[in-house]
Design a protein around this nucleic acid. Structure first.
Length: 686
RNA sequence: GCCGAUGUAGCUCAGAUGGCUAGAGCGGGCGUUUCAUACGCGCUAGGUCAGUGGUUCGAUUCCACUCAUCGGCACCA
């Protein structure tokens, strides 16, 4: 049997766990549990990404050593995974000795291949992203486009990885492996990115030290992505020669099925950089990289400002790990964005699990009294019995195929079909009538058996998502808990294997209903209330959904928030203000009131407006401003704006921009800093 | 601007390699059973399958264009 290896992103320790992390991790856990049930050798890895300048600084702020700080972030994750019944086999930390050594081994392999070279690097650096930004990327005022924080000019020697050499090999690999990246749409994006050409990648830093030292060059630490991505093999003891690291040989061997579950925001790193590193080192690539979407909460993006950064713990307490896992894996089409909605969770719970599944068991168990509480012995199935049996077998195969293809929600769809079919069957066969006469007892036995066998099928198929509930169902059927064994495929395939004579154990409802009162109490306790929102919750959430989608990238990361550092964006702008400057620095800025004389769109540039601005000088200035998405040329002409007059001229879209128009970015849109009409053009603004 | 995707019932989405009455779940409405966690089952949505044009005996399904939405890249002093 093929070894199966599944990984989550290693989560950046800047955030405490929230449902975004929980979602990625639960998805991976569902896969791991499924493959174990199938009898495959299975390995499931999660862990933490603990290096980087951002961490170093955070620790400094807290007056802690970086190591102490990252150590303190481990327990919250371990607790969360325990609460959610996550069955990872290993927990990798990038600060662990085994990881550091592995990364250095990989480095040497890349170096030996000739893919590492030293060169000068100077550019703007964003601490939040832990990455360099080209000047063109920055927002007015040298702000990081993702974090809206000032970037810093850093010049240093840096080692580079010859990524440019791998564009062609990657494209060939993509062609040969049409399922390498999922969903398909994401794969297309990756391909077009690579087709556009790849630049060599800076893979070391000497400006800070919280990272893994480059071998023989300890003044350099490795670029965070090279460090972080390597976790997937370092946890197995790789890279290593055959025979040295058994786990690596098995789960990263040629025939292993290796799946990385990642957030859509870190897809590029996993599908371009990581494969390129591996190619360079002569190591096999992962089988598949699955990018899931992000969760909104009740229609709104998650953010600290809204107070809806949901930690999983209260949800687990309220609903249990099983139900929570079921909910978001069922609700969200895997690979697409989805919404975590408390009301909807309760509705699905009550309808699908309570009324549908739990009640199915409850409505048939009472009839077992007619058979001494034991599963009756029945002969070959015919008619409606056989029809349901073959439906169950067909659906089991379908669920299996869906799970093999990582179509988690589709698998749950198919499971729901069996629940419905079984309920309809009970309805049609009317066991309550059959139990009234001794003559129909034989038929009753058949109906009871078929129904119970359906529940047994369901108990196995649901075990990957709801391991505890599955076993509770089994307990009432008189069956033992599932215990996966390597080499033993426990997936249901043949209908009718529920042993006759098994003593059922009718118990309490497995999915007790949440009544209206309880629901109200739960919602009051669990749903974060955004400020200023009143009235119809549905309407407001619908409207917010739209705005959430339009949010700047990097601010809504949830599922992917676990990504190695760069992805983690929501944090920085919230807590840290801009650095302070001296008055002299400020005095250097020549701010003046300008009158916009003409304005026109720059052809082929969505965001650019070309302005001619009167600054009280002999000739008007040409200024190219990135405001076209917010203002039409007509709206600009005649306006008085505040201009940075002594900004070094630069070319934008082939046009020289001689200054910058100041604006403030509000939640409702861009606002220009203005002056009233009686201020003559050219008046200094300080 | 370039590239790609999407646009189907109130909501979330399936689907048709072109062909009689276009589907599911949820919600809403109506009916019905009584075994069960007042649960289940059945019926019910008058949908221009975004718009326009084309190919065709015939298109919602193929093609072109348009519009809208989303994503990637570019771009953003």
């Amino acid at each position: 049997m093929k070894p199966f290896y599944v990984t989550t992103p290693i989560y950046y320790v800047n955030d405490k766990p929230h449902i975004g992390h929980a979602y990625s991790t639960a998805a991976a856990d569902m896969l791991a549990r499924y493959h174990r049930l199938r009898g495959q050798p299975t390995r499931f890895l999660t862990g933490l990404d603990e290096h980087g300048l951002k961490i170093e600084r955070r620790a400094q702020e807290l007056g802690q050593e970086p190591q102490a700080f990252v150590d303190s972030m481990v327990p919250p994750f371990e607790e969360a995974w325990q609460q959610l019944d996550i069955t990872h086999d290993d927990f990798i930390r990038t600060t662990s000795a085994r990881h550091k050594e592995a990364v250095q081994r990989l480095w040497k392999m890349l170096e030996a291949k000739g893919d590492i070279y030293l060169a000068d690097y100077e550019d703007w650096y964003c601490v939040g992203c832990e990455s360099f930004k080209t000047e063109k990327e920055l927002l007015p005022g040298n702000l990081c486009p993702d974090h809206k924080k000032p970037v810093e000019k850093i010049k240093e020697q840096s080692y580079f990885f010859r990524l440019s050499a791998y564009a062609e090999p990657l494209l060939r690999y993509f062609d040969a492996h049409p399922d390498f990246v999922k969903p398909e749409g994401r794969f297309n994006e990756v391909k077009s990115f690579v087709r556009a050409g790849l630049r060599d990648l800076s893979v070391s830093r000497s400006s800070f030290s919280w990272g893994i030292p480059v071998p023989e060059q300890p003044e350099h630490v490795m670029y965070v992505w090279l460090d972080a991505l390597t976790n997937y093999i370092s946890a197995l003891g790789g890279p290593a020669e055959p025979g040295v690291a058994p786990l690596y040989d098995q789960f990263w061997g040629e025939d292993a099925n290796v799946i990385h579950i990642v957030g859509k925001d870190i897809l590029r790193f996993h599908t371009i950089y990581w494969p390129a590193f591996l190619m360079s080192a002569g190591i096999r690539l992962p089988s598949q990289v699955w990018a899931h979407g992000w969760l909104t909460v009740n229609g709104e993006k998650m953010s600290k400002g809204l107070g809806n950064f949901l930690p999983p713990a209260p949800l687990v307490e309220a609903f249990g790990a099983d139900v929570l896992r079921y909910y978001f894996l069922r609700e969200v089409s895997f690979g697409q964005d989805g919404d975590f909605n408390h009301k909807n969770l309760i509705a699905r719970y009550n309808n699908e699990l309570g009324n549908g599944l739990g009640n199915l068991l409850n409505r048939i168990l009472p009839f077992l009294k007619k058979f001494d509480g034991k599963v009756p012995d029945v002969g070959p199935l015919e008619g409606a019995d056989a029809a349901l049996a073959s439906l169950a077998e067909g659906l089991a195969a379908q669920v299996r195929d869906n799970l093999d293809a990582v179509q988690l929600n589709r698998a749950l769809d198919a499971i729901k079909e069996l629940i419905d079919a079984a309920n309809k069957y009970v309805n049609d066969e009317e066991p309550w009538n059959l139990s009234k006469s001794d003559e129909t007892l034989g038929r009753l036995a058949q109906v009871a058996y078929v129904t119970l066998e359906c529940v047994r099928f369901l108990s196995v198929m649901l075990a990957p998502v709801m391991p505890n509930k599955a076993n509770e169902l089994r307990a009432q059927l008189g069956l033992g808990a599932l215990e996966p064994q390597v080499g033993v495929d426990a997936w249901p395939s043949r209908f009718g294997e529920l042993p006759a004579g098994t003593a059922v154990v009718a118990g309490k409802p497995v999915f007790p209903k949440i009544d209206a009162k309880q629901e109200e109490a739960l919602l009051a306790r669990l749903v974060p209330v955004p400020e200023g929102v009143e009235g119809d919750a549905e309407k407001s959430s619908g409207a917010d959904k739209k705005s959430a989608k339009k949010a700047p990238k990097g601010q809504a990361d949830s599922g992917g928030a676990g990504a190695p550092s760069g992805a983690d964006a929501a944090e920085g702008g919230v807590t840290d203000g801009p650095t302070t400057i001296e008055f002299d620095d400020f005095a250097k800025v020549d701010l003046r009131v300008g009158l916009v004389l003409t304005a026109e769109k720059v052809p082929k540039k969505d965001r650019l407006l070309r302005l001619e601005v009167d600054l009280g000088e002999p000739a008007p200035r040409q200024i190219v401003a990135g405001i076209a998405e917010h203002f039409t040329p007509e709206q600009m002409v005649g306006r008085r704006v505040v201009v940075v007059a002594n900004l070094a001229p630069r070319k934008l879209a082939g046009l020289v921009s001689q200054g910058m128009v100041l604006a403030t970015n509000t939640p409702t849109g861009l606002q220009l800093l203005a002056a009233s009409d009686d201020v003559p053009p050219g008046t200094p603004a300080k």
